Every structure is written in structure tokens, then in C-alpha cells.
Computed example of a mutant assay.
Amino acid sequence: GYAFAKYTFPAGTALFSVVLGSIMVPTTALAIPTYLLFAGVNLTDTRWSVILPSLVSPFGVYLMRVYAADAVDTQLLEAARVDGAGELRIFFSVALRLLAPGFITVLLFTLVATWNNYFLPLIMLSTPEKYPLTVGLAQWQSAAAAGSGGQVLFSSVITGSLVSIVPLVIAFLYLQKYWQAGLATGGVKG
């Protein structure tokens, strides 16, 4: 997103249009090709088969482009270039600090989307010990309902669902300080 916002390069607009177009493709439509791709490299029934597809986020690229366009001042980048800093140093020393609130936002969006993803782990994983809590609860619920003549375990499933959101709440509370620091960045006049 930072590169799309701050650099001009050949086919940059076309490449960004492809990223925007990929946002419109539902992830369920990519489930079978993703499974076939991971089966080809023997990564099915591993945790990587759930983690790796979640690392690619076209919405995250779009959000970071929009955020970087306003958060990182072009004059600040030019001043760093005049001082002799290279592009990597400018990114890691100047831009990344200014992009922290946007980066944390994309991280949390991706974390919640991955944590709540039901379909991808269901098709990628076949070992019940590797199921995430959401898939494991649903499988346990369906097995219990089928084995006991249709008795539903609502209390256990609801308790498990409550427990499953605890890591998300902890992540939000921990990462909240980065949002607050980002809000206060422009509040002091130098």
C-alpha cells in the first residue's frame, strides 16, 4: 500500500486496479483452487494451509494505500532523501513509524477474519486435533446431535464460543495503545 501511495512506477495504476478487482472476488470462490494449490505442494492438513492464504489481503493493501497517502508526508520523505537516506532506511525509520496505526488496523482486521474463518479450515484440515475452535465446536455439536438422537448441546457450544473470543479481546486491548499513539502523533505542534 505504501508503494502504491508514494511511488510512481510503470503499470502501477493497472496493478492497483487488479488489487481492487481481487477484493470483489469472494473467498469461497477461491477455496477449491486454493485447496488444489496446497495439495500440489503437500501442505493440506497443516496449519500453514490456513495461515498462508490469510496473509494475502487485497483489502489491507487498499487500506494501507489510502492511509499512507495522508499519513506519510511527501516532504518528509524528500527531506530524508536529501539527508542521504536510502529508500529502505526511509521506509523502516520514517514511514513505518507513521504507518503503525494503519498497520495495526490491517493486522486486527486480518486477525479477526482469520479467527472467524470457518470454511477454509473445514476444507483444508482433516485431522480433528488441528481444527480451530470454531470448526471443532461445530464438528463436536454435529457429532453429539447425531449420536444422541438429536440432543443439542447449546450450553457447551455457547460457552466454547465465548471462550473463543477471549484471544481477540486480548489482542484488541493490547494493540489499542498503538491506535491511541497514532491519534496523538499530530496533536503536538513542533
Rank of each mutant, 00 (worst) to 15 (best):
G1S: 13
Y2P: 03
A5G: 03
Y7A: 02
T8G: 02
T8Y: 12
T8V: 11
F9A: 05
G12C: 08
T13D: 12
L15R: 05
L15I: 14
S17W: 06
S17N: 08
V25A: 10
L30Q: 08
A31H: 03
L36I: 09
G40K: 12
T46R: 05
S49M: 04
S54A: 15
L55C: 10
V56T: 10
P58M: 07
V61W: 12
M64A: 01
R65P: 00
Y67N: 04
D70C: 00
A71T: 06
A71L: 08
Q75K: 07
L76K: 02
L77Y: 06
L77H: 02
L77K: 01
R81T: 13
V82R: 07
D83E: 14
G84W: 12
E87N: 09
R89E: 08
S93N: 11
S93D: 11
S93K: 10
L96F: 11
R97Y: 11
P101R: 04
P101H: 08
V106S: 10
L107S: 14
L108T: 07
V112Y: 04
W115P: 12
L120S: 01
P121W: 02
M124E: 04
S126L: 07
T127P: 09
E129I: 04
Y131T: 01
L133S: 11
T134G: 00
Q139G: 01
Q139M: 12
W140L: 14
S142F: 13
A144D: 03
A145C: 01
A146K: 07
A146Y: 05
G147S: 15
G147F: 10
S148R: 08
G149A: 07
Q151G: 00
V152I: 15
F154E: 09
S155A: 15
S155I: 10
V157G: 05
I158V: 13
V163A: 12
S164A: 15
I165Y: 02
I165R: 08
P167I: 07
L168Q: 11
L168H: 05
V169C: 01
F172C: 11
L173Y: 08
L175S: 11
K177T: 10
K177E: 12
W179Q: 06
V188I: 15
G190Q: 10
